[in-house]
Deep mutational scan, measured.
Amino acid sequence: MSRVPSPPPPAEMSSGPVAESWCYTQIKVVKFSYMWTINNFSFCREEMGEVIKSSTFSSGANDKLKWCLRVNPKGLDEESKDYLSLYLLLVSCPKSEVRAKFKFSILNAKGEETKAMESQRAYRFVQGKDWGFKKFIRRDFLLDEANGLLPDDKLTLFCEVSVVQDSVNISGQNTMNMVKVPECRLADELGGLWENSRFTDCCLCVAGQEFQAHKAILAARSPVFSAMFEHEMEESKKNRVEINDVEPEVFKEMMCFIYTGKAPNLDKMADDLLAAADKYALERLKVMCEDALCSNLSVENAAEILILADLHSADQLKTQAVDFINYHASDVLETSGWKSMVVSHPHLVAEAYRSLASAQCPFLGPPRKRLKQS
């Protein structure tokens, strides 16, 4: 649940008159999402009104509101027999009622949201009550392989729920002597030191190019640089560091992050930047690179990204790559990247197969709970 924001200063709310007192009302909304995959969808019983329910879910471990999704594969009634019906059901509720908006969509073979439908307002739910769409999607369109909505005969539904909580009022009075504290510009100011090479005390040599930097900042941000300058190493004695395995453009992006906490060109060089972040123990930059690479996972590059993640101990990226390969196994196994990995990294192939087997055979063990970014 997000923290209630402070109200904007009255002088910034309007260029008009300023009242002596004010009130700011925040209506709290808890948002969460749920993904439900139905394997072997074409084998569902086709009687009209037949119901399939998901397991229950909530916004978190401490949330007492429990929900589930309900599907009628062949419609709810005679009117909707040519459609799939989809509903959000409130299973248990400690209150007399709650209000919530919802959005349903289908994830296609690429994991993209399609055929989205959402409620136009927050509906009133009581325990045992459901709301949804009797005519969510035509069955003939859903079952047509050309539309790519049932890869490997799996129907994957994605649901986003927004639950309306209580409202909170914050009130106060205006004073004539309003003090406005300026925003912190530390990142910009440190970035200026790097860009202008002011007050530098060490030189970093990268592929024949020299960059002036500040030992204190490098040591504070990177345990690797800290070790170089702290001990009686040649880098500490000469205040000069030779860097041979990072390209200059990648190095500059890494230094921008060290000084400012930002990497504006990360998406263009996420793979190389991940390697640099791993070498210099820049954990936050490493996770930022993992996130960017996750966003660009595809059938063509899944094997290469899995190898990269394994090489640099990028655990979150590795998990996402394995899950992606499992979901698109029939396509990924035909790529040149996968065939190369079979020869060069057989242990990763074995890991992917083990994960695929456990996903398809849940009876082999208890269900695993899916539970950071600093």
Rank of each mutant, 00 (worst) to 15 (best):
M176R: 04
S330P: 06
N62P: 10
S119L: 03
A357F: 01
T319K: 10
K154I: 09
Q120R: 04
I27N: 13
K339A: 06
Q316P: 08
M1E: 00
V51G: 05
S2H: 04
V98G: 11
E20Q: 06
F363E: 15
K66H: 10
P73M: 07
S21Y: 03
K110W: 15
E351I: 07
L86Y: 08
S336L: 09
G148V: 04
K31T: 14
A263E: 05
K81Y: 03
S222A: 10
P367E: 15
P182H: 05
L149F: 04
L65G: 13
A109W: 07
K31Q: 11
I305N: 02
T319D: 10
S374Q: 14
V98D: 09
S340C: 12
E195K: 04
N147K: 05
K339E: 02
P151T: 08
C68G: 11
A314C: 14
I170L: 01
E249D: 08
V4S: 11
K81H: 14
N296I: 09
A303V: 11
L65E: 06
K81P: 15
S92W: 14
H312Y: 03
I38T: 02
N72K: 04
N239Y: 01
K318F: 11
Y34R: 12
Q173L: 02
V179F: 07
F133T: 14
Q165K: 11
P10T: 12
F225K: 00
V30Q: 11
A11K: 02
N39A: 06
A329Y: 08
Y327T: 05
D323A: 07
H214K: 00
A187T: 09
L84E: 09
V164G: 06
A11W: 04
D188N: 05
M48R: 02
V349S: 11
P151A: 12
V224W: 09
W338P: 00
P94C: 11
M255E: 08
R370H: 04
S355T: 06
Y123V: 11
L65F: 08
T156R: 10
E20F: 08
N169K: 02
S21A: 10
A207W: 13
M233T: 11
L186N: 03
K115T: 01
H312K: 15
L297Y: 00
A19Y: 06
V168D: 05
S85L: 04
P346S: 03
F251G: 09
S96T: 11
G172C: 02
T335V: 01
K339C: 09
F104N: 01
R3V: 13
D166Q: 10
L306T: 02
P9C: 12
N62Q: 08
M288H: 06
L86H: 10
Q209C: 10
F199W: 15
E230K: 07
E20D: 08
L204V: 15
M269G: 06
L90M: 10
S374N: 15
A220L: 15
E189G: 08
R45Q: 06
F363C: 14
V51Y: 03
Q360M: 13
L150A: 11
I258N: 01
E97G: 03
V126I: 08
S14W: 01
I52Y: 05
H328A: 13
P10L: 08
G75P: 02
L297Q: 03
V299A: 04
A263T: 07
Q212E: 09
G191H: 10
N72F: 07
E79A: 10
A122G: 11
Y83A: 13
K31C: 10
L297I: 14
L308Y: 01
A350G: 01
K135R: 07
G191E: 08
D82K: 08
M178L: 03
E113P: 12
N296M: 11
K64T: 03
L90R: 05
G172V: 04
L333Y: 09
G132D: 01
S340M: 08
V181L: 04
M13K: 06
V224D: 15
C289G: 06
A122T: 07
T175A: 02
E189R: 09
A350P: 03
L86C: 10
I38D: 00
S355L: 05
D144W: 04
K369Q: 02
K318C: 14
D272W: 08
K74L: 04
R45W: 07
D77V: 07
V29R: 10
S54E: 04
V206L: 14
R99N: 15
A213N: 14
S58N: 15
M233H: 15
Y123M: 07
G49K: 02
Y87I: 08
V163M: 06
E50K: 02
A352Q: 09
